[in-house]
Design a protein around this nucleic acid. Structure first.
Lengths: 141, 141
DNA sequence: ACATCTGTTATATTATAAGTATAACAGTTA
DNA sequence: TAACTGTTATACTTATAATATAACAGATGT
């Protein structure tokens, strides 16, 4: 077991990573939603509880929550609590797709330099999609 | 014409972006290689010339060059100059593919939340691949 | 020989971002 | 009343990004 890592609930943080903690938190929660481990209306721990659980400062958690709120992933009721957006995340529009494309470009450029075929690259994407849909098997009943 | 932007040769920088300048430089050069605008053996401007052309500090350029050197995109001959790696960039291995997958995961997770179908996501990737191969038409002769 | 170019190294400064540490405020709930 | 909620404010440390000079050592061209 490595040192600077923390696992709490579905949250996995790597304190050694160069990726900021609050960004990791954001991604972990979005992954939870994508995997249907977090459903619309589900409550999230308070900023203090989450901070205490994973051993970081409450402001770092708050920063992540604010970002998630701004992008429509969660709702924050002033004195109630934090919940996954009950009406689901807003669907992708043209602006979002352009953002994705802009962020994807560097990876594809480097992959082309390294002779990764278009087929192999798409295969990686497909594997990731499969990974996220794996946990949806409970839908069968 | 916007203010804080600079276009020199194939290099396009956005000083308003939150993406660091040296990172933008790295990506622009890698894109140039991917598009075959920069071929193995082609010279790159000296750190001072490049810095003067795009109006930034030579250390910022040097930082980008060092990264590109470390990852095998360019060669730096001490008192000669900087050239695109004559023997091409090293091919992708399993480690690189894992890195790509790890970086891709957050985008796919968010896309799933926003109800982007696997097909639509793959289409975006295909469009990017097409974009990079567009400039390869000169191969016909 | 001399001046000019090359990458490299060193030092210093400014600005910004990340993360933490306390503290307090205003509502809610038990 | 006590314990909880998100929020705000202030202060501090650390790291990174970017700039500004300056100098060194080797190569090149005149």
């Amino acid at each position: 077991m490595k040192e600077r890592e923390r696992d709490v609930m579905f949250i996995h943080l790597d304190f050694e990573s160069e990726e900021p903690i609050y960004t990791q938190l954001i991604h972990q929660i979005i992954e939870g939603i994508a995997k249907k481990e977090l459903l619309p209306g589900d409550p999230l721990p308070s900023v203090r509880a989450m901070a205490a659980d994973i051993g970081i400062n409450l402001h770092t958690v708050n920063k992540a929550y604010q970002h998630l709120k701004q992008e429509g992933f969660i709702l924050i009721h002033r004195q109630k609590g934090v919940v996954i957006h009950p009406e689901g995340v807003s669907k992708a529009d043209a602006t979002y797709m352009e953002k994705v494309k802009r962020k994807l470009r560097p990876f594809i450029a480097e992959s082309i330099c390294r002779q990764v075929s278009e087929e192999d690259f798409l295969k990686q994407c497909q594997e990731l999609f499969s990974e996220f849909k794996k946990d949806k098997e409970g839908d069968a009943k």
